[in-house]
Amino acid sequence: METLKIDGSIGHGGGQILRSALALSAILGKPFEMHSIRKDRNQSGLRRQHLCGVLATAEICGAKLEGAELGSEDLLFIPKKIKAGTYQFAVDTGGSVSLVLQSVLLPLAVQKMKSHISVAGGTYTPQAPTAEFFAETLVPRMNQMGYSIQAEIARAGFFRIGGGLVKVDCCRKDTFMPVYWMNKETPRKCFIQIVTTQFPEKTTLKIAKLIREELSKMRNMIPCQLPRPKGRG
C-alpha cells in the first residue's frame, strides 16, 4: 500500500496534525510518513506528550514505527489491525491526557468489542482541553453519533507534576447516526468549577469569593465549587 506523505509544518504546525494522522491511519489501515513535525515550535519534533500518543496508537494497532523518539521531526507509521482490549498509558511530566486520547479513542471506539483505556498524566495543562471538556463536551457529542463512551476523571493532575488519571470505556453501537448542530442555543446557566489539589483551602475560598463577586454583576451565572479531587499538583 502506498505511504501517504504529510508535511507536519503546515497550518499551525503543531501536534494536532500528528494526532489526527495517527487516528485516521489506524482506522483506515493506511501508512503515513510525516516530516517537519512541529518544526517551527520552540522545541521542535516529538515531545514526551506526542511520543506517548504515537506509542499508544501503535500499541492498539500493532503498528511498525520508525523515528519514534524524543526530538524526532520525522515519523513512519505503518498500522496493522486494531485490537480492542485493556490499555494503560502514561504521559511523563504531566503532559495532557486529553491530547493522548485524541489519538487512541476514535480507533478503539469504532470497534464492536469494548475497550478499557486508562491514561495517566495531566488533566489540566496549558494549551490543551481539560479533562472536564473531554468528559462533558466531547464524549456526549460522540455518543450522539453512535459511539458508546463512558469517561471517568479518577484523579486530577496538573502540569508539570502530573499524577492525574482518566479512565474510558468505549466501543461502537449498532449503527452510526447523523447529527445536526446548526441551531444556536442560548445558554441558560453557566457553572464555574474550581479544581485544586494540595492547595491551601483559604486560598481556594478567596478565589471563589472573587469569582462570585464578579459573576454577581452578570445574569444567569451560577458559580459552583466542587470538592477538591485526589491528585498531585
Rank of each mutant, 00 (worst) to 15 (best):
S9D: 11
I10V: 15
I10F: 11
G11F: 00
G15L: 09
Q16C: 04
L18I: 05
L18N: 02
L18W: 01
S20V: 10
L22H: 03
L24Y: 11
S25C: 01
S25G: 04
A26W: 01
I27D: 06
G29R: 01
K30D: 07
K30T: 08
F32S: 04
E33R: 09
H35L: 06
S36M: 10
R38N: 02
K39L: 11
D40L: 06
Q43S: 14
G45V: 00
L46S: 05
L46A: 04
H50S: 03
H50N: 03
H50W: 00
C52H: 00
C52W: 01
L55F: 10
L55G: 02
L55K: 14
A58V: 01
E59K: 14
G62K: 08
G62F: 09
A63H: 00
K64W: 09
L65I: 09
L65T: 09
E69K: 14
L70R: 11
E73A: 07
L76K: 03
P79H: 03
I82G: 07
I82M: 04
A84F: 02
G85P: 00
Y87G: 13
Q88G: 12
Q88A: 15
Q88C: 13
A90W: 01
T93M: 09
G94I: 02
G94N: 03
S96D: 03
V97Y: 02
V100M: 05
L101D: 06
Q102C: 08
P107Y: 08
P107E: 05
P107W: 09
P107N: 05
L108E: 01
Q111I: 04
K112G: 08
M113F: 08
I117A: 04
A120M: 11
A120N: 13
G122Y: 00
T125D: 00
P129H: 00
T130E: 02
E132A: 15
F134Y: 13
L138V: 15
V139A: 10
V139R: 05
N143F: 05
N143D: 07
N143R: 05
N143C: 06
S148F: 05
S148T: 09
S148E: 13
I149C: 06
I149L: 06
I153P: 01
I153V: 14
R155D: 11
F159M: 02
F159E: 00
R160Q: 10
I161N: 10
G163K: 06
K167N: 15
D169W: 15
D169H: 13
C171W: 09
R172W: 00
R172D: 02
D174Q: 12
F176H: 09
F176N: 11
M177C: 14
P178D: 08
V179P: 01
N183E: 15
E185Y: 14
P187K: 06
P187R: 07
R188H: 11
R188S: 13
C190A: 12
C190P: 08
C190F: 12
C190S: 13
Q193E: 14
V195F: 04
T197L: 04
T197D: 04
Q198N: 15
P200F: 10
P200A: 11
K202D: 15
T204I: 09
T204N: 11
I207N: 07
K209G: 08
K209P: 02
I211D: 09
E213N: 14
L215R: 10
L215F: 10
S216R: 15
S216K: 14
M218N: 08
P223Q: 11
P227T: 05
R228D: 12
R228S: 15
G231N: 04
